Simulated assay, not measured.
Amino acid sequence: MKAIGFKTSLPIENQDSFIAFETEKPIPGAHDLLVKIDAVSINPVDFKIRQSGAKDTVLETPKIIGWDAVGIVQGVGEKVTLFEVGDWVYYAGDITKQGSNAEYQIIDERIAGRKPKTLTNAEAAAMPLTTLTAWEILFDRIRINPEKDKGKTILIIGGAGGVGSIAIQLAKKIAGLTVIATASRPESIAWCKEQGADFVVNHKNLTEEVRNAGFQYVDFILDFVDTNAYWDIMAELIKPQGHIASITGSSEPVLLNKLKTKSVSFSWEFMYTRSMFETEDIVEQHNILNLTADLLDDGVLKHTLKQTLEGFTVENFKEAHQQLESGTTIGKIAIKF
């Protein structure tokens, strides 16, 4: 089968930053689906791993990345019960295994969901990773209860990005929160409002912007940009007994003592935790994807695809990575095979 990967970490402009190659079609294990891929989307994790996954070395076998895909099931493992050959699925994959930038991929059925019927394959491919991340951070990490927490305030730092876009929708339409999102350019401000944000504030002067919008403190904060850069601001803006959650990691230790006097909770969200550790509740990702497929099909949620590149080519992956690395993209970029 054809695949696209890399042997060494190079700037995206380099001719060999991505290479096309032939490799064996994978064989599904007990809980695996063999999927013929039709569309993928690109996320920041893709370029971060491309930049760091083979630094100062040359891999003997190219590394295949990619963690959002839509495809049709062509084979199943002996213990598969959730899907059959011929089913269309969408999923965000497993960071410990070969990725989706290939003609075929094996994926654990417990982290795949049925593809939304009303979306094109490219539109559906834009959704799994960001939707799982946003759902988990809201409902598994902060444990927002739509009945108890309806009307409370949430600040979403990085509202126009892939995760921010769907987090705005989930926070507004499912959790019933008052949503404050950050954006600075006219097009990103408009995008956040289109997703359902009640207020859009400029991240460049965030504390003052939130206060000027009429909020001394907020109940919840989601960081999708930079934990360290926004730590002091988040500690100032969070309401006593509030909850902050982040997906971005930290280059320096996080000073949790800044949250002590307010009795504030803090959580990390890593979408791959369930698949990496095969947690007891790993099938929850299957359940979340099926639930959000229904919400997408019913029009409660809408896809966040902004651009589609046609063709399974090195050039298209380079183009997508280059755009994401610029830090100016809005919504998601997909590649249709």
Rank of each mutant, 00 (worst) to 15 (best):
residue 106 I to W: 03
residue 271 M to D: 02
residue 117 K to D: 10
residue 208 E to D: 14
residue 215 F to N: 13
residue 203 H to L: 04
residue 218 V to Y: 11
residue 141 R to I: 00
residue 116 P to F: 03
residue 81 T to F: 04
residue 228 N to M: 11
residue 31 H to W: 07
residue 255 L to W: 00
residue 123 E to Y: 05
residue 95 I to F: 08
residue 71 G to Y: 08
residue 75 G to D: 15
residue 129 L to W: 05
residue 133 T to Q: 05
residue 80 V to E: 02
residue 318 K to Q: 13
residue 213 A to E: 14
residue 73 V to K: 12
residue 273 T to R: 01
residue 137 I to E: 03
residue 119 L to F: 08
residue 277 F to C: 01
residue 220 F to C: 09
residue 241 Q to N: 14
residue 128 P to A: 12
residue 328 T to L: 13
residue 293 A to M: 11
residue 164 G to I: 02
residue 38 D to I: 04
residue 186 P to C: 10
residue 320 A to G: 10
residue 44 P to R: 10
residue 81 T to L: 08
residue 120 T to H: 03
residue 41 S to C: 12
residue 169 Q to N: 12
residue 18 F to Q: 04
residue 233 I to K: 07
residue 70 V to W: 07
residue 89 V to N: 09
residue 328 T to G: 00
residue 239 K to H: 15
residue 72 I to Q: 15
residue 281 D to S: 12
residue 169 Q to P: 08
residue 158 G to C: 05
residue 67 W to N: 04
residue 82 L to Q: 13
residue 75 G to E: 14
residue 106 I to K: 07
residue 301 L to Q: 03
residue 249 G to V: 14
residue 191 W to C: 07
residue 238 I to R: 01
residue 207 T to N: 13
residue 185 R to Q: 13
residue 334 A to L: 07
residue 49 I to P: 01
residue 7 K to S: 13
residue 227 T to N: 02
residue 109 E to F: 02
residue 153 T to N: 09
residue 78 E to F: 02
residue 72 I to C: 10
residue 159 G to W: 03
residue 292 T to M: 14
residue 177 L to V: 07
residue 306 K to Y: 08
residue 262 K to D: 05
residue 39 A to P: 02
residue 101 N to G: 03
residue 153 T to M: 09
residue 275 S to Q: 10
residue 119 L to T: 06
residue 296 L to I: 06
residue 337 F to A: 13
residue 73 V to W: 01
residue 280 E to W: 01
residue 165 S to D: 00
residue 194 E to R: 11
residue 22 E to Y: 00
residue 73 V to E: 02
residue 143 R to G: 01
residue 330 I to E: 11
residue 301 L to S: 03
residue 143 R to L: 09
residue 331 G to L: 03
residue 295 L to R: 13
residue 298 D to N: 15
residue 326 S to W: 06
residue 28 P to S: 05
residue 29 G to H: 09
residue 265 S to T: 10
residue 167 A to S: 15
residue 220 F to S: 10
residue 200 V to E: 07
residue 171 A to N: 08
residue 18 F to S: 04
residue 222 L to D: 00
residue 113 G to K: 06
residue 223 D to W: 03
residue 120 T to N: 07
residue 319 E to V: 06
residue 94 D to G: 12
residue 232 D to P: 00
residue 283 V to A: 15
residue 180 I to P: 10
residue 16 D to E: 15
residue 118 T to M: 08
residue 261 T to K: 14
residue 262 K to L: 06
residue 67 W to S: 02
residue 203 H to E: 12
residue 284 E to R: 15
residue 245 A to E: 02
residue 87 D to P: 14
residue 75 G to F: 12
residue 1 M to I: 01
residue 92 A to K: 01
residue 221 I to N: 05
residue 156 I to T: 06
residue 117 K to V: 11
residue 196 G to Y: 06
residue 308 T to V: 14
